[in-house]
Simulated scan of single mutants.
Amino acid sequence: MVSAGDFKNGITIELDNNIYQIIDFQHVKPGKGAAFVRTKLKNIKNGGVVEKTFRPTEKCPKAHIDRKDMQYLYNDGELYYFMDVETFDQIALGEEIIGDSLKFVKENEVVKTVAHAGNVFAIEPPLNVELLVTECEPGEKGNTAQGATKPCIVETGAQVLVPLFVNEGDTLKIDTRTGEYLSRV
């Protein structure tokens, strides 16, 4: 149990049968009345953000979140299969859990599964990945305004905006959080 007076950014708590991560908190001491803690909570499972106030003495159970390295094996159309890199146990997850998190991940790459009480609810891809450009239009001569970009398709099928000098067959480094081009490899 963690009391509201001890809240810190990043702590995960259980509240109303959901798991929330504290994004922001503020201890408020008004001129009249009792002090309280104003928080912004992010629902870890669906990503929604709510604001809630607590009395400093209120207690919430701390949620234990497990992150485990798993190798992404393959997708059979409905399910995505992962293997524990230590025990070689395999699990299958549905598309509703995966969402867009594997947009830049190739088969056989290691990702992190995020679970609470043994139930996986999210996948965290590596921060940066290196992918081959499979489709890309050539950059037009004279179209060299600062920051000019063009769309390219990488080997996972995702579309990325890249600078004009990138060509088909190049290997790119991509930030998986934003989907932005970082550099050529």
Rank of each mutant, 00 (worst) to 15 (best):
K42H: 03
N43G: 05
I44K: 09
N46S: 11
G47T: 06
G48A: 12
V49T: 14
V49R: 09
K52Y: 10
F54S: 08
P56I: 13
T57P: 00
E58G: 05
E58K: 13
E58N: 13
C60A: 04
K62L: 10
A63W: 08
A63Y: 09
I65M: 11
D69C: 01
Q71L: 11
Y72I: 07
Y72M: 05
L73A: 09
Y74T: 14
G77R: 00
E78H: 12
E78I: 13
L79G: 01
L79Y: 10
L79M: 15
Y80Q: 04
Y80I: 02
Y81S: 08
Y81N: 08
F82Q: 02
M83S: 11
M83V: 12
M83F: 03
D84Y: 02
V85S: 06
E86L: 14
T87A: 03
T87I: 06
D89S: 07
D89L: 09
Q90I: 15
A92N: 07
L93K: 02
G94N: 13
E96I: 12
I97N: 00
I98K: 02
G99C: 10
D100T: 09
D100S: 12
K103S: 12
K103G: 06
F104T: 00
F104H: 02
V105T: 05
V105D: 01
K106D: 10
E107H: 14
E107N: 14
E107C: 09
V110C: 06
V111W: 02
V111Y: 01
T113W: 02
T113V: 15
A115F: 05
H116Q: 09
H116S: 11
A117V: 06
A117Q: 13
G118D: 08
N119R: 12
F121H: 07
I123Y: 00
I123G: 00
I123L: 05
E124P: 02
P125T: 07
L127I: 08
N128I: 13
L132N: 09
E135G: 02
E135C: 04
P138V: 00
P138L: 00
P138C: 00
G139C: 08
E140A: 11
E140R: 14
K141T: 12
T144K: 12
T144Y: 07
A145S: 11
